[in-house]
Design a protein around this nucleic acid. Structure first.
Lengths: 203, 203
DNA sequence: ATAGTAGTTGACTAACTAGTCGACTATGTT
DNA sequence: AACATAGTCGACTAGTTAGTCAACTACTAT
């Protein structure tokens, strides 16, 4: 079956790291190759362009991420608990990245999506697809919470949009200000948005 | 007093447009010059770098914008009315940009800030400065609203952060999805966040 | 009118960038 | 062993990018 290699995976890891710590514009194919320890000829053996490797890497990372998201948003977990766990999970990632790179990095999908949406159609479409998928976790949690009477949110889709805007906005603010602290308010902010009475908030 | 010229202003206009419609990474000095109808030699007569012209342009644009913001957030206007007017104003700008460029562009400060904050210190600092200044308009409006008993927000600074995160997040979602419609929920979303009773909402 | 000042220009260099290609190497199959 | 397949590599081209510079032009005050 020919020569074996993990170069493709290394390239995808490298591009993700560069996109997240920097930006699409600051990420060059030369840099990706250098970080992956792969020569450019090999890059073009696997991918056609920067957009191509970005789409592949985002997709692969999301597929891996889904396992954790499915656990966090499992319907066996009470709705508010799902949201609280998601916020904690996200916070832990940001802490890890800040320790590793010196910067709060925020949500790579959101930052990258905002940067390239007017220019790189294919990347934008992949990002939209993933963000939409993630939105459904929230919509379901909110629908379940409403059904359980934990809070009042008859239009779960609309409430989910509001919550997502807040969460993504907060993550991006954290990136711009390079400040982890503001992220600690995330779960509380979401609960307030949902009109959860303090007594109902899971420890 | 030597030769007169509006080339400096044209360059600042051009860079703003390119940054807003595209990104920092996609905006080159050559493109800026081309759009401004100015040769590169002249560019370097006025500015030292892309970061330099960006900072100057953002600052100038914000100074111009402040006049409108001061009117919208005038203390003679009822607090909720200020917020409603701000949302309407922002929506009108997005409509105008979509008509002009074919894309919903969102908040240039937020998009740009998220893109460059790990790389271009000077630009990041200017963006933070402007965003902080804008945040104070909201904080004051929320403090005034609480004092007037229109809603309950004893910690105006914290509530302002939540509201800003939501607004910026929503604007960025609109950019990513190229969708004007979701912006129409903005004022309503903010009012819900503040716990305003529907009866109090200004027409 | 002329001299100083402010702004303009085109032609240049050097570095970087994307993308190509043919020769090469490692692995599994027969 | 030898062959097909999968992957690697270095050297290459061509276009783009940032940045420089000396010569030039327009304006104003005296």
């Amino acid at each position: 079956m020919g020569r074996v290699s993990d170069a493709k995976a290394r390239l995808m890891d490298a591009v993700l790291e560069l996109l997240w710590t920097g930006s699409y514009g600051s990420t060059t194919i030369d840099h990706i190759c250098e970080r992956a320890g792969v020569k450019k000829g090999s890059f073009y053996y696997f991918f056609n362009s920067k957009a191509d490797v970005a789409v592949a890497a985002l997709d692969a990372a999301f597929q891996a991420n889904r396992v954790e998201l499915d656990a966090i948003f499992s319907s066996s977990v009470p709705p508010l608990e799902r949201i609280r766990k998601y916020c904690e999970f996200g916070y832990a990632i940001q802490v890890e990245m800040k320790a590793k790179f010196g910067y709060v990095l925020g949500c790579p999908l959101f930052t990258l999506g905002a940067e390239i949406c007017t220019q790189e159609q294919a990347v934008g479409a992949k990002i939209s697809e993933i963000l939409e998928y993630k939105a459904r976790y929230f919509e379901t949690a909110i629908r379940d919470g409403h059904a359980a009477g934990v809070f009042h949110a008859p239009d779960a889709a609309a409430k989910s949009r509001v919550v997502r805007a807040y969460i993504e906005g907060l993550l991006t603010q954290a990136r711009i200000q390079n400040d982890l602290e503001i992220l600690r308010e995330m779960a509380e902010g979401v609960f307030n948005m949902l009109g959860v009475k303090s007594a109902e908030i899971p420890a």
